[in-house]
Amino acid sequence: MTATIWWTIAGCTVVTAIIKGIGPVALGGREIPPRFSGVIAFMAPALLAALVVTNTFALGDHWTVGAHTVGVAVGGLILVRRGPLVLAVAAAVAVTALLRAVT
């Protein structure tokens, strides 16, 4: 197991560095064509929404809802009402833990 763990760490280090390094080099330092600036501006909402839904409604390769879904909804409500991130996260965790404690 020890060897497997260290090989995993080494492998993840290499692939992460390569993936993070390739993007900035891909266009060869050219200015991005103006037409593509709209694409770049839209990447954040598309990627972040995907991260939210896959972390809320998916576990591995199947859809799921549970106590954490309710917790995230409460955290989201606080965020939409311009509450601070740390408070929203604390509320999300507390609601999730509470629901798990009573069910």
Partner: peptide
């Protein structure tokens, strides 16, 4: 049982909310 799995989506949701500025980004 602590509810730590609610942290990640809330973290990403905060970033998402600040990116959704108009109808198109929504």
């Amino acid at each position: 049982r602590l509810g730590l799995d609610a942290i990640y989506p809330t973290f990403f949701l905060a970033l998402l909310i600040s990116e959704v500025k108009d109808r198109t980004t929504f």
